[in-house]
Simulated assay, not measured.
Amino acid sequence: MSGRLFLSPPHMTGNEQRYIAEVFESNYIAPLGPMVTRFEQAICDYTQAPYALGTSSGTAALHLALRVSGIGEGDIVLASSFTFIGSVAAILYQRATPWFIDAEMASWNLSPELLEAAIARSPKPPKALIVTHLYGQCADMARITEICRRHGIIVIEDAAESLGATLDGVHTGIWGDFGIYSFNGNKILSTSGGGMLVAKNGEAIKKAMFYATQAKEPTPWYEHKELGYNYRMSNVLAAIGVAQMEVLSERVAQRRQIFEWYREALGEIDEITFMPELPGAHGNRWLTTLTFGHTDPERVRTALEAQDIESRPLWKPMHLQPLFAGADAVTDGASEQLFLRGLCLPSGTQMGREDVLRVSDIVRGAVV
């Protein structure tokens, strides 16, 4: 690839422009329309989710899941700490109280053991859990869902980064009561913006649709008894999503191939450890991520940047963010170490082996 090598740029090579042209010809360019319905159905067909709702973003989908679940002021919502702010911002939207849970080193995702500890320490029963599937890799959902069901906790999966990933043959996003996907510009499936809420309960999706369309009552005029939001997906963006779904399996295979190329090039270096994959899991490897034993990741990042190659530190844990100063958290230091020692490497599906080798040579040269 020529020019700057980005971390995870969009990849448009299929029927995107054809389907967008159909939208313009139909004049359905506002939210809602046939392409939105088609995109929702494509997600259901691919993941086996019973119901789906296209939204303006993954964060909007998370907010709707919390709202439909009855989460409100003072309720405790457990959440992965090692994640992006969009995973947990909606907790504050509902004036609920976040309680953060650290990662386990076996998956870099939420620790089932610490989940049990958080539930035991909570001053009142937690209402819900938002669990993130980080960097396209599956959390230990069999254990996590068993724990939550035993305690009557609603499970919301943040599968924003993990569309196409499976654990024991089951897609991320449909293990719990709700799941969300993101189609932001850097995701494995990109519509430039947008998200999807999936659920097992059709009535819950129907209520989420009501809230997502300004909570308008079924009258000829605009009547509102409840607060709603402008959270529906554009028909134009959905057209891009329909085209992207046609090549999603290919994109997952490409990301996994890129990871294998990195592992072949760097795997023998004792200093480097790649993000692990749980037994029975098939992650989408949205980003290839690794940690260093002694080398400062910033040294590697700046070496790559000097060659016009984008890389990025791993997520700074939510319990270390100034916004959440004083928030409750059950931690054992895992996510803090990952943040201090880790880096995300370029993983876009337009990369070839020569691009991976170029990045790997710079990484190798920066290792001390």
Rank of each mutant, 00 (worst) to 15 (best):
residue 23 V to L: 06
residue 23 V to K: 02
residue 23 V to R: 01
residue 24 F to A: 14
residue 24 F to G: 12
residue 24 F to K: 14
residue 24 F to W: 05
residue 26 S to K: 12
residue 26 S to N: 12
residue 27 N to W: 06
residue 27 N to T: 15
residue 27 N to Q: 15
residue 27 N to K: 14
residue 27 N to M: 13
residue 28 Y to F: 06
residue 28 Y to M: 09
residue 28 Y to H: 11
residue 29 I to V: 15
residue 29 I to C: 05
residue 29 I to L: 08
residue 29 I to Q: 06
residue 30 A to S: 10
residue 30 A to V: 08
residue 30 A to C: 10
residue 31 P to T: 02
residue 32 L to E: 03
residue 32 L to M: 09
residue 33 G to K: 03
residue 33 G to E: 04
residue 33 G to T: 07
residue 33 G to Q: 09
residue 34 P to F: 04
residue 34 P to C: 07
residue 34 P to N: 10
residue 35 M to H: 04
residue 35 M to V: 04
residue 36 V to N: 01
residue 36 V to Y: 00
residue 36 V to D: 01
residue 36 V to W: 00
residue 37 T to K: 02
residue 37 T to S: 02
residue 37 T to A: 04
residue 37 T to C: 01
residue 38 R to A: 02
residue 38 R to M: 02
residue 38 R to C: 02
residue 39 F to V: 07
residue 39 F to Q: 05
residue 39 F to E: 03
residue 40 E to W: 00
residue 40 E to C: 00
residue 41 Q to L: 06
residue 41 Q to R: 11
residue 42 A to T: 06
residue 42 A to Q: 13
residue 43 I to D: 10
residue 43 I to R: 06
residue 44 C to L: 08
residue 44 C to A: 14
residue 44 C to M: 14
residue 45 D to C: 10
residue 45 D to A: 15
residue 45 D to R: 09
residue 45 D to G: 12
residue 45 D to K: 07
residue 45 D to M: 13
residue 46 Y to P: 07
residue 46 Y to Q: 13
residue 46 Y to I: 10
residue 46 Y to A: 14
residue 46 Y to R: 14
residue 47 T to M: 13
residue 47 T to W: 09
residue 47 T to Y: 12
residue 47 T to A: 12
residue 47 T to K: 11
residue 47 T to S: 15
residue 48 Q to R: 11
residue 48 Q to S: 15
residue 48 Q to N: 15
residue 49 A to M: 09
residue 49 A to I: 08
residue 49 A to H: 00
residue 49 A to Q: 06
residue 49 A to W: 00
residue 50 P to C: 14
residue 50 P to H: 07
residue 50 P to T: 14
residue 51 Y to P: 03
residue 51 Y to C: 08
residue 51 Y to T: 05
residue 51 Y to A: 08
residue 51 Y to V: 07
residue 52 A to P: 03
residue 52 A to C: 11
residue 52 A to Y: 03
residue 52 A to K: 03
residue 53 L to A: 13
residue 53 L to R: 10
